[in-house]
Design a binder for these strands. Structure first.
Lengths: 325, 325
DNA sequence: ACTGTTCATCGAATCGATTCGACGGCGACA
DNA sequence: TGTCGCCGTCGAATCGATTCGATGAACAGT
């Protein structure tokens, strides 16, 4: 319809060779007229690029699902801004899904969400030689690009915050014990850093395991509060538990911050959704996702030339909501 | 390596022609040895099928995001069970995204989540001639496959439930006014059915708009409760508001069900996440997603032969959590 | 011994894009 | 006027699968 060959159309579209203005106009007109859209399959066959990133989401029964959405959304949005679509895979056997997507060439790169120590998906990723980025820190990060929140810094920050206000007896509510056992390194990193800092500065810190499902959450929190009657501060590092806390403290007649100072770690959205009134380190899943995708696309474009592989720990600031005194 | 032609390998894999056991063994061995996986791009180019479904997720600022995940997960899982992967698109311009995915042949079919009346994505879907299923009911459903919860039946059910227990003065908290204005038909369908049933049976029902963001939620609920001091029952049709309700009633010193009977409409997961203790119609996003995907794959496989297009309203049962008397 | 079937396999065309090398036309320069 | 180079365009090969028609072997029937 434009009176030119297919190669000319291709060059007009990609701009990889010069095209006369006259020809370009005719091509554009014909494209509009015919509503032509390049076929993704053919393009990916020829170029070995798909414009799709695989997002591997892992759902653990014992984790708090709503928190996951905070990661997924910014990731898809950032990806789109960089020209990529997202293939979301939520299978239990994440390693198998990853391998399938990568080997069949459906994706240009992979994002692994909520990576734990010993995560089988990491081995699968190494085996495929596809670019990939982890969100969540495994034990062995050799040759991997990893992005995560700096949980240790966050923990120290919160401990200091309470200490500076004069608190000397504080309770930490961590994720459930099985999250520790399973390899959720964020739980270790937060708790260990908190414990160490507390002992350095002379703060009595009682580390407890929280729960992640009702009705265990309520029982567990009641028990923890009952057993530390002298504690004046509470550090919550457990999404499910902190979401239940306002109502529970209300039922117990505990006023915040008059009777108890509470600090935690969650995102702005999370605070909004659950009406959480606590001073908290503001984790930024959106930023994390953005950093991860940016890193991944760099790696896709430049391979090993995109710089050395490594771990990026993102620091977060404290947001004072007046729940401490 | 197996000493056969490519076509024989293809037939061995697909089983579309008979293959001698001996040859099949040699092919399988070679495939394992070479770690061969068919290239998705080439396959889709040849067959015009991708094994991918497009999932169009719409995020309205004024809606309650955590609820969305309840739909997304079962959808990806059901899809995978039927052999499909999910391409997730969350762009603001959903119509554009839909068109892009469909026209470039990236997907075999489309799922539209949270469809409203006058949704531009519906027009885009009609224009593509791709199989598609809507979750959420628009005004005009001609020629469309639609799946949604039966909100009208749910509303009548809850009204009857309170009436049968002797309540005669009840308040309904709906979604925010702009959800009605925007075309969220579930808000109309629920409210209109509730109002009509109430007038039929002689129940005084005050329909109010709820809010969806703090701190407006709290102020709004306080106002509603203050202005209907004689109401003995509360019907909550508003995720964000009902999530805040337990704490708020606690603060007001209102006991459930002694001082007030509360019923609502939400899923089991939602109740768990937010520790909601109310008797509720148990919406089942998982079932909805499953029905939608099943319908879509039928449509992909058999086109118009898969039966007439139409709307499936899924009914849901009431779960008594003891919040009424 | 010849014909007709059935079964397993092969060769070649095809899907729709990208890309490389080639080529004709034209202006610049000697 | 002849040569060189550049610019814009074209033709053909290619990516990796699927699929149709053809082919040869084995075997049964007359």
């Amino acid at each position: 319809m434009a009176g030119v060959s297919r190669s000319t159309v291709s060059y007009a579209l990609s701009g990889k060779r010069s095209i006369s203005p006259e020809t370009r106009r005719r091509v554009d007109d014909a494209i509009k007229e015919l509503k032509f859209t390049p076929n993704a399959g053919a393009r990916s066959l020829r170029t070995a690029q798909t414009g799709v990133l695989g997002l591997l989401v892992q759902f653990h029964e014992d984790e708090f699902a709503p928190a996951m959405l905070q990661y997924i959304l910014p990731i898809t949005e950032t990806a789109r801004a960089l020209g990529y679509d997202i293939l979301m895979m939520t299978e239990n056997d994440g390693a198998e899904a990853l391998t399938r997507a990568a080997e069949s060439g459906m994706v240009d790169g992979l994002i692994l969400l909520d990576v734990i120590d010993g995560d089988p998906r990491v081995d699968a990723l190494r085996a495929t030689h596809q670019p990939g980025v982890l969100v969540g820190l495994p034990g062995d990060t050799r040759g991997l690009d990893v992005v995560d929140l700096d949980f240790a810094a966050a923990a120290r920050n919160l401990v200091d915050h309470l200490f500076d206000l004069g608190h000397r007896d504080v309770v930490l509510v961590s994720p459930p014990r099985h999250v520790f056992d399973r390899g959720g390194t964020y739980s270790w990193r937060f708790r260990d850093a908190a414990v160490q800092r507390a002992s350095e500065i002379g703060l009595r810190l009682t580390a407890r395991y929280g729960e992640s499902q009702q009705p265990a959450i309520d029982a567990n929190l009641h028990e923890i509060l009952d057993e530390s009657p002298d504690a004046t501060g509470l550090i919550m590092h457990n999404d499910a538990s902190v979401a239940a806390l306002p109502r529970l403290l209300n039922e117990r007649g505990v006023r915040v911050p008059d009777d108890l100072s509470v600090v935690s770690l969650y995102s702005r959205d999370f605070a909004r959704w659950f009406s959480l009134p606590y001073t908290a380190i503001e984790s930024s899943p959106g930023l994390l996702g953005k950093v991860a995708i940016t890193q991944l696309t760099e790696r896709i474009a430049h391979g090993d030339d995109a710089g050395p592989h490594g771990t990026r720990l993102v620091a977060a600031e404290i947001v004072d909501r007046g729940s401490t005194r």
